[in-house]
Design a protein around this nucleic acid. Sequence first.
DNA 1: CGTCTCATTGACACCCTTCAAACGAAGTGG
DNA 2: CCACTTCGTTTGAAGGGTGTCAATGAGACG
Lengths: 232, 232
Amino acid sequence: MHAELSTHTLSSVPALALRAGRPGAARQAGLTADPLGVDGVKMSYGRNEEIFGEGEPAVNLYRVLKGVVRTYRILADGRRQIAEFFLAGDVFGLEAGQDHRTSAEAVSDCEVVSIRRSQLAERAMADSPTGHKLWGLTLHHLRRSEEHMLVLGRKNACERLAWFILDMSERIPAPDRVDLPMSRQDIADYLGLTIETVSRTMTQLQDEAVISLPSCRQVVVRDRRGLSDLAA
Amino acid sequence: MHAELSTHTLSSVPALALRAGRPGAARQAGLTADPLGVDGVKMSYGRNEEIFGEGEPAVNLYRVLKGVVRTYRILADGRRQIAEFFLAGDVFGLEAGQDHRTSAEAVSDCEVVSIRRSQLAERAMADSPTGHKLWGLTLHHLRRSEEHMLVLGRKNACERLAWFILDMSERIPAPDRVDLPMSRQDIADYLGLTIETVSRTMTQLQDEAVISLPSCRQVVVRDRRGLSDLAA
DNA sequence: CGTCTCATTGACACCCTTCAAACGAAGTGG
DNA sequence: CCACTTCGTTTGAAGGGTGTCAATGAGACG
């Protein structure tokens, strides 16, 4: 039923280890009934092995049977923010859209059940349009808060503010003239900064000519590309 | 410490502000069909007026019609972390459990539709147990990531690590002897710190006798109360 | 025009990062 | 069994980014 070969065992056997440490080399090991009421496929992953990568189509949902899994995002320069650790019993891989917004890796050797998303969707959504919409909303919030975590955990003041202005500008009708509805204190508390740092960084962005500030509540995006670069 | 309720507005426009600026003074203004397919009640809130508070029973879901809403959490010493700003069209107030885990306030004067949760639950959950479970899982993740945001945005290294150890200890069978499955680098990337700071803070916690470290992967919780206090 | 609130700017301190080196445990090969 | 290597962790010293404290500036409103 279950292949008794742990990846750890494998790694002491050079010939096989090559396959175990490589993404996609995880082995299918049997069928398991899931608490969600859908059968899944049992898989094994070695330490640091990738389970899915950012940007890949999200075809499966996963539940941890043994071991620990981390999900994370990485910035261009290598800074990494781990969103969550998943222990035995935890479900991960929930996504609002078609693709994974985070990567997932095995922290230790582990076993997971993978469940086809389409199988769940078919059961969960078909019956109840209201439930489906609610779920979609929640996934959307989750996605945003994972992005927010990356910002809070790994970005500096300039990157945070650039990201904030871009985000706000994309959520309103006229994207190049942002009327900030909130105070500096609100922005500071959203970005995990102080009001003074927000203020200083605002003028710094203005000095660098990526934005201009007709008033403290109005931001004009002068160089969207430049702002985007600064957001890292 | 932070923005007081709109007493300022009150003194400026006495007649109107009395109704608009006082918590609980929001006015019911009519019925509106919601995109979720359920009728809701239209409400108005003045600037800085509370829509719901942390710890209150979560009876309603809300959708913003006009204005902007913020949700946030506050630490004992007043540090605030805003989780999200909600603009027109956005839905907020989703909760995994019975109670609100955040507070919500009007950033500007705004109108929202409030929808009874029970009305939605009745439609969303009854039909599809799978969907209900999926939704519950997603809400659980959302709740955790909002907590995570508070930690990343507003806590220092010592508070972050104390929180992390407590959280891990509560997720495993033997809560006083935590076997960390992850490396210092993983912990650092989870807490938005560097590996050196994590290491230094670990020994600091050991020096203060709230934990002991038989090995670098084993944490013994010696003073749970003390650790809890340090977690702020 | 005075008051109030919020935003900006400056000087300084401190927490955390960066850079660097030593230490320890685990695995390998002789 | 013991050097040797490797990887992860710990510790130290120095620097920088952001917070803190304080003063000034700018709108809003009466």
